[in-house]
Nucleic acid binder design. Structure first.
Lengths: 116, 116
DNA sequence: TGAATATTAAACCTTTTGGTTTTATATTCT
DNA sequence: AGAATATAAAACCAAAAGGTTTAATATTCA
Protein backbone atom coordinates (compact mmCIF):
# COMPACT_ATOMS: atom_id res chain seq x y z
CA UNK A 1 0.00 0.00 0.00
CA UNK A 2 1.02 3.53 -0.62
CA UNK A 3 2.47 5.88 1.93
CA UNK A 4 -0.91 7.48 2.56
CA UNK A 5 -4.13 5.95 3.75
CA UNK A 6 -6.59 5.16 1.02
CA UNK A 7 -9.05 7.90 1.93
CA UNK A 8 -7.72 11.36 2.52
CA UNK A 9 -8.97 11.55 6.08
CA UNK A 10 -5.58 11.27 7.73
CA UNK A 11 -3.90 14.50 8.52
CA UNK A 12 -0.47 14.41 6.99
CA UNK A 13 1.44 17.58 7.67
CA UNK A 14 4.26 16.69 5.32
CA UNK A 15 1.86 16.03 2.52
CA UNK A 16 -0.05 19.27 3.01
CA UNK A 17 3.25 21.17 3.28
CA UNK A 18 4.17 19.80 -0.11
CA UNK A 19 0.79 20.35 -1.72
CA UNK A 20 0.32 23.94 -0.58
CA UNK A 21 3.99 24.62 -1.23
CA UNK A 22 3.59 23.33 -4.77
CA UNK A 23 0.54 25.56 -5.26
CA UNK A 24 2.37 28.62 -3.98
CA UNK A 25 4.25 29.31 -7.23
CA UNK A 26 2.40 30.88 -10.15
CA UNK A 27 4.32 28.86 -12.74
CA UNK A 28 3.29 25.64 -11.03
CA UNK A 29 -0.33 26.77 -10.83
CA UNK A 30 -0.16 27.65 -14.53
CA UNK A 31 1.25 24.19 -15.26
CA UNK A 32 -1.66 22.60 -13.42
CA UNK A 33 -4.09 24.81 -15.32
CA UNK A 34 -2.49 23.71 -18.57
CA UNK A 35 -2.69 20.07 -17.56
CA UNK A 36 -6.33 20.64 -16.76
CA UNK A 37 -6.86 21.04 -20.50
CA UNK A 38 -5.05 17.87 -21.51
CA UNK A 39 -1.97 15.81 -20.70
CA UNK A 40 1.28 17.10 -22.19
CA UNK A 41 4.98 16.45 -22.42
CA UNK A 42 7.61 18.38 -20.49
CA UNK A 43 8.67 20.19 -23.66
CA UNK A 44 5.11 21.18 -24.50
CA UNK A 45 4.56 22.36 -20.96
CA UNK A 46 7.76 24.39 -20.92
CA UNK A 47 7.26 26.13 -24.27
CA UNK A 48 4.92 28.95 -23.17
CA UNK A 49 7.09 30.02 -20.24
CA UNK A 50 10.00 32.38 -20.32
CA UNK A 51 12.08 30.33 -17.92
CA UNK A 52 14.38 27.59 -19.12
CA UNK A 53 13.24 24.04 -19.71
CA UNK A 54 15.25 22.67 -16.76
CA UNK A 55 13.44 25.16 -14.55
CA UNK A 56 10.07 23.86 -15.73
CA UNK A 57 11.33 20.33 -15.33
CA UNK A 58 12.07 21.09 -11.69
CA UNK A 59 8.66 22.63 -11.16
CA UNK A 60 7.07 19.50 -12.56
CA UNK A 61 9.15 17.37 -10.21
CA UNK A 62 7.81 19.41 -7.29
CA UNK A 63 4.25 18.97 -8.54
CA UNK A 64 4.88 15.27 -8.94
CA UNK A 65 6.31 14.91 -5.44
CA UNK A 66 3.28 16.71 -4.08
CA UNK A 67 1.14 14.11 -5.83
CA UNK A 68 -0.45 16.70 -8.10
CA UNK A 69 0.95 15.39 -11.36
CA UNK A 70 1.41 11.90 -12.72
CA UNK A 71 4.18 11.07 -15.15
CA UNK A 72 4.09 8.39 -17.78
CA UNK A 73 7.46 7.79 -19.38
CA UNK A 74 7.22 6.58 -22.97
CA UNK A 75 10.62 6.24 -24.53
CA UNK A 76 12.36 9.56 -24.24
CA UNK A 77 9.09 11.46 -23.85
CA UNK A 78 7.51 12.08 -20.46
CA UNK A 79 3.76 12.50 -20.55
CA UNK A 80 2.36 14.45 -17.61
CA UNK A 81 -1.20 14.59 -16.45
CA UNK A 82 -3.16 16.04 -13.59
CA UNK A 83 -3.60 13.93 -10.48
CA UNK A 84 -6.47 15.52 -8.67
CA UNK A 85 -6.36 13.50 -5.49
CA UNK A 86 -3.82 15.79 -3.86
CA UNK A 87 -5.86 18.79 -4.98
CA UNK A 88 -8.83 17.21 -3.29
CA UNK A 89 -6.74 16.87 -0.12
CA UNK A 90 -6.00 20.60 -0.16
CA UNK A 91 -9.63 21.34 -0.87
CA UNK A 92 -10.68 19.17 2.01
CA UNK A 93 -8.36 20.99 4.39
CA UNK A 94 -9.78 24.32 3.28
CA UNK A 95 -13.27 22.86 3.53
CA UNK A 96 -12.92 22.72 7.29
CA UNK A 97 -13.05 26.49 7.20
CA UNK A 98 -15.91 26.83 4.74
CA UNK A 99 -18.32 27.04 7.65
CA UNK A 100 -16.73 30.38 8.51
CA UNK A 101 -17.35 32.07 5.23
CA UNK A 102 -20.72 30.44 4.93
CA UNK A 103 -21.56 31.97 8.29
CA UNK A 104 -20.30 35.30 7.08
CA UNK A 105 -22.47 35.12 3.99
CA UNK A 106 -25.48 34.02 6.01
CA UNK A 107 -25.01 36.86 8.44
CA UNK A 108 -24.74 39.24 5.55
CA UNK A 109 -27.87 37.84 3.91
CA UNK A 110 -29.76 38.06 7.16
CA UNK A 111 -28.68 41.62 7.59
CA UNK A 112 -29.82 42.53 4.09
CA UNK A 113 -33.13 40.77 4.72
CA UNK A 114 -33.82 42.93 7.74
CA UNK A 115 -33.18 46.13 5.83
CA UNK A 116 -36.41 48.10 5.32
CA UNK B 1 -11.23 50.77 -2.35
CA UNK B 2 -8.85 48.02 -1.41
CA UNK B 3 -6.14 46.57 -3.56
CA UNK B 4 -8.39 43.71 -4.63
CA UNK B 5 -11.67 43.79 -6.43
CA UNK B 6 -14.67 43.41 -4.19
CA UNK B 7 -15.56 39.92 -5.38
CA UNK B 8 -12.77 37.40 -5.60
CA UNK B 9 -13.20 36.79 -9.30
CA UNK B 10 -10.01 38.52 -10.38
CA UNK B 11 -7.02 36.33 -10.72
CA UNK B 12 -4.25 37.80 -8.65
CA UNK B 13 -1.10 35.76 -8.92
CA UNK B 14 0.67 37.66 -6.16
CA UNK B 15 -2.23 37.16 -3.81
CA UNK B 16 -2.49 33.43 -4.50
CA UNK B 17 1.29 33.08 -4.16
CA UNK B 18 1.00 34.59 -0.70
CA UNK B 19 -2.08 32.63 0.35
CA UNK B 20 -0.82 29.23 -0.72
CA UNK B 21 2.65 30.10 0.54
CA UNK B 22 1.17 30.98 3.91
CA UNK B 23 -0.72 27.69 3.97
CA UNK B 24 2.38 25.69 3.13
CA UNK B 25 3.81 25.72 6.66
CA UNK B 26 2.34 23.43 9.30
CA UNK B 27 2.77 25.94 12.10
CA UNK B 28 0.81 28.52 10.14
CA UNK B 29 -1.93 26.01 9.39
CA UNK B 30 -2.04 25.16 13.08
CA UNK B 31 -2.32 28.85 13.91
CA UNK B 32 -5.27 29.17 11.56
CA UNK B 33 -6.86 26.10 13.11
CA UNK B 34 -6.42 27.63 16.54
CA UNK B 35 -7.93 30.90 15.38
CA UNK B 36 -10.84 28.93 14.01
CA UNK B 37 -11.75 28.21 17.62
CA UNK B 38 -11.59 31.80 18.80
CA UNK B 39 -9.55 34.99 18.44
CA UNK B 40 -6.37 35.09 20.50
CA UNK B 41 -3.34 37.18 21.30
CA UNK B 42 0.13 36.57 19.93
CA UNK B 43 1.29 35.25 23.27
CA UNK B 44 -1.64 32.87 23.56
CA UNK B 45 -1.05 31.68 20.01
CA UNK B 46 2.65 31.15 20.59
CA UNK B 47 2.36 29.24 23.86
CA UNK B 48 1.62 25.74 22.49
CA UNK B 49 4.49 25.77 20.01
CA UNK B 50 8.04 24.82 20.67
CA UNK B 51 9.45 27.61 18.54
CA UNK B 52 10.22 31.02 20.00
CA UNK B 53 7.67 33.77 20.28
CA UNK B 54 9.39 35.94 17.65
CA UNK B 55 9.14 33.02 15.26
CA UNK B 56 5.39 32.77 15.83
CA UNK B 57 5.14 36.53 15.51
CA UNK B 58 6.72 36.27 12.06
CA UNK B 59 4.37 33.47 11.03
CA UNK B 60 1.43 35.63 12.03
CA UNK B 61 2.80 38.51 9.98
CA UNK B 62 2.92 36.21 6.97
CA UNK B 63 -0.66 35.10 7.58
CA UNK B 64 -1.70 38.70 7.94
CA UNK B 65 0.02 39.75 4.72
CA UNK B 66 -1.73 36.90 2.96
CA UNK B 67 -5.02 38.32 4.23
CA UNK B 68 -5.74 35.23 6.30
CA UNK B 69 -5.56 36.89 9.69
CA UNK B 70 -6.82 40.20 10.99
CA UNK B 71 -5.07 42.02 13.80
CA UNK B 72 -6.69 44.33 16.29
CA UNK B 73 -4.17 46.20 18.39
CA UNK B 74 -5.45 47.11 21.83
CA UNK B 75 -2.77 48.77 23.89
CA UNK B 76 0.17 46.45 24.02
CA UNK B 77 -1.93 43.41 23.21
CA UNK B 78 -2.53 42.28 19.63
CA UNK B 79 -5.75 40.36 19.12
CA UNK B 80 -5.72 38.11 16.07
CA UNK B 81 -8.68 36.55 14.33
CA UNK B 82 -9.35 34.52 11.24
CA UNK B 83 -10.10 36.37 8.02
CA UNK B 84 -11.72 33.79 5.81
CA UNK B 85 -11.93 35.80 2.62
CA UNK B 86 -8.45 34.81 1.52
CA UNK B 87 -9.21 31.20 2.41
CA UNK B 88 -12.24 31.47 0.19
CA UNK B 89 -10.00 32.75 -2.61
CA UNK B 90 -7.80 29.67 -2.30
CA UNK B 91 -10.85 27.46 -2.18
CA UNK B 92 -12.22 29.09 -5.28
CA UNK B 93 -9.01 28.49 -7.17
CA UNK B 94 -9.08 24.84 -6.18
CA UNK B 95 -12.76 24.75 -7.05
CA UNK B 96 -11.90 25.16 -10.72
CA UNK B 97 -10.45 21.68 -10.52
CA UNK B 98 -13.26 20.09 -8.57
CA UNK B 99 -14.85 19.02 -11.84
CA UNK B 100 -11.88 16.69 -12.32
CA UNK B 101 -12.25 14.76 -9.14
CA UNK B 102 -16.01 14.81 -9.45
CA UNK B 103 -15.56 13.24 -12.87
CA UNK B 104 -13.22 10.70 -11.37
CA UNK B 105 -15.73 9.80 -8.70
CA UNK B 106 -18.54 9.62 -11.24
CA UNK B 107 -16.50 7.39 -13.49
CA UNK B 108 -15.72 5.20 -10.54
CA UNK B 109 -19.37 5.06 -9.48
CA UNK B 110 -20.43 4.23 -13.03
CA UNK B 111 -17.86 1.50 -13.19
CA UNK B 112 -19.05 0.00 -9.92
CA UNK B 113 -22.64 0.22 -11.14
CA UNK B 114 -21.84 -1.84 -14.19
CA UNK B 115 -20.21 -4.57 -12.17
CA UNK B 116 -22.28 -7.77 -12.19
C1' DT C 1 8.43 56.99 38.49
C1' DG C 2 9.84 52.51 37.82
C1' DA C 3 9.14 47.52 37.06
C1' DA C 4 6.78 44.16 34.43
C1' DT C 5 4.50 42.79 30.15
C1' DA C 6 3.41 42.15 25.04
C1' DT C 7 5.19 42.52 20.99
C1' DT C 8 8.30 43.99 17.29
C1' DA C 9 12.90 44.94 15.35
C1' DA C 10 17.53 43.87 14.43
C1' DA C 11 21.36 41.12 13.57
C1' DC C 12 22.75 36.90 12.48
C1' DC C 13 22.95 32.03 10.74
C1' DT C 14 21.67 27.85 8.04
C1' DT C 15 18.83 25.65 4.72
C1' DT C 16 15.75 25.88 0.90
C1' DT C 17 14.10 27.80 -3.34
C1' DG C 18 14.32 29.04 -7.94
C1' DG C 19 16.93 30.15 -11.45
C1' DT C 20 20.97 29.66 -14.70
C1' DT C 21 24.35 27.06 -17.87
C1' DT C 22 26.70 22.99 -19.06
C1' DT C 23 26.96 18.06 -19.24
C1' DA C 24 25.10 13.42 -19.36
C1' DT C 25 21.79 9.79 -20.64
C1' DA C 26 18.53 7.55 -23.22
C1' DT C 27 15.90 7.16 -27.25
C1' DT C 28 14.64 7.76 -32.02
C1' DC C 29 15.54 8.69 -36.84
C1' DT C 30 18.29 8.40 -41.19
C1' DA D 1 26.71 3.87 -36.69
C1' DG D 2 25.90 8.55 -36.05
C1' DA D 3 23.00 12.77 -35.64
C1' DA D 4 19.11 14.74 -33.49
C1' DT D 5 15.81 14.89 -29.73
C1' DA D 6 13.71 14.81 -24.89
C1' DT D 7 14.75 15.03 -20.52
C1' DA D 8 17.49 14.76 -16.25
C1' DA D 9 21.66 15.73 -13.53
C1' DA D 10 25.23 18.56 -11.89
C1' DA D 11 27.39 22.59 -10.45
C1' DC D 12 26.71 26.93 -9.33
C1' DC D 13 24.57 31.35 -7.62
C1' DA D 14 21.45 34.87 -5.46
C1' DA D 15 17.60 35.53 -2.81
C1' DA D 16 14.13 34.01 0.41
C1' DA D 17 12.60 31.27 4.35
C1' DG D 18 12.76 30.06 8.93
C1' DG D 19 14.91 29.92 12.95
C1' DT D 20 17.74 31.91 16.92
C1' DT D 21 19.17 35.52 20.50
C1' DT D 22 19.45 40.13 22.03
C1' DA D 23 17.71 44.78 21.99
C1' DA D 24 14.02 48.23 21.50
C1' DT D 25 9.33 50.10 21.97
C1' DA D 26 5.03 50.78 23.92
C1' DT D 27 1.84 50.02 27.44
C1' DT D 28 0.14 48.83 31.97
C1' DC D 29 0.45 48.31 36.88
C1' DA D 30 2.08 49.19 41.62
Amino acid sequence: MSRRASCAIVEDDDHLDRVFGALSHRIRRALLARLGESPATIGELAAPFEVSLPAVSKHLRILEEAGLVKRDVDGRVHHCSLDTRALADAEQWLGHYRVFWDETLEALAKHVEQEP
